[in-house]
């Protein structure tokens, strides 16, 4: 018998604490598989965020550091400048990356820091209990906008890939989703390419993964993936926003 899939070596053999249907588990696996396939596990340092993925430092089977909320790219910068031969990735949620850590995100991208950022956008705060995220959709309910996000009060959701694509320092930006098996496979290609971008010394890479948080969206995992495909994807179009190969900087919608 041929084993079709196996647990990547870059993921510790422990049970993850995430809620049923949470997208973090899938995203973790994609990162770990990429590390395995590129053969960089033993020289990779990961930065765990604040939020549900804070425990990622227990899950990835490589050196890990967990730091303050939103500061992942700054920590990754310090790591990379001191260990240029290491592969450094920062794993962050939407509150972490696009709210409290926006300055660190933009400036590490602007510097063209040769790091890889894995950005999990599930349009809601997870660990703190479903508050409004910078990426919460207009009309979407959260515990701090119980009537739904009202742009007049709460402003508009932020499109990070579009924003970062304006910066000369970025080399690879792609938005993917994990709402179906086909999209998971595509997402994997993007994550792996982002790591390759760094390995080849090309500069800043970021993959935005549209993901789910069934618990705080208040819906079942199956409804949550439907929410991603029907509600989130129209707001956050999938595609490549910056590509070091071919120098394409325009969005190729998928």
């Amino acid at each position: 018998m041929l084993q079709v899939n196996r647990r990547p070596e870059s993921l510790c053999d422990v049970k993850m604490h995430y809620c049923p249907g949470c997208g973090h588990g899938i995203a973790h696996r994609l990162v770990a598989e990429s590390m395995d396939e590129l053969g960089v596990r033993e020289r990779t340092i990961g930065v765990a965020p604040v939020g549900c993925a804070v425990f990622a430092d227990d899950y990835f089977n490589c050196d890990m550091i967990q730091g303050p909320h939103g500061r992942g790219p700054a920590i990754a910068t310090g790591l990379k400048r001191c260990k240029p031969d290491c592969i450094v990735f920062s794993y962050q949620g939407d509150g972490d990356l696009a709210s409290i850590g926006m300055a660190e995100t933009i400036h590490s991208a602007g510097r063209g820091e040769n790091i890889t950022v894995i950005f999990i956008n599930n349009a809601i705060y997870g660990m703190t209990g479903g508050q409004m995220a910078p990426t919460t959709l207009v009309g979407q309910k959260a515990t701090t906008c119980p009537q739904g996000r009202d742009p007049l009060v709460n402003g508009y959701p932020m499109r990070i890939c579009e924003l970062l694509s304006q910066l000369d320092g970025t080399r690879y930006l792609e938005r993917v989703s994990i709402h179906s098996a086909a999209h998971v496979i595509k997402a994997k290609r993007a994550v792996k390419k982002a790591f390759r971008c760094q390995i080849e010394g090309r500069g800043f890479s970021l993959v935005e993964i549209l993901s789910t948080c069934p618990t705080n969206m208040g819906i079942s995992p199956l409804d949550a993936v439907k929410f991603v495909s029907d509600q989130m994807v129209p707001q956050y179009p999938l595609g490549v926003f910056k590509d070091f190969e071919g120098g394409k900087s325009d969005v190729s919608r998928d």
Binding site: V47, I65, G67, P68, R71, A74, I75, A76, T77, G78, L79, K80, R81, C82, K83, A103, E104, I106, H107, R111
Partner: peptide
């Protein structure tokens, strides 16, 4: 060595957090 003019003091101290974690004097 490496010098970075950070975007803020907040970023600078966190760069140190990462750099120092590699065992370097920072």
């Amino acid at each position: 060595g490496a010098f970075i003019q950070a975007e803020s003091e907040v970023a600078a101290i966190n760069m140190l957090y990462g750099a120092c974690a590699t065992g370097k004097r920072t």
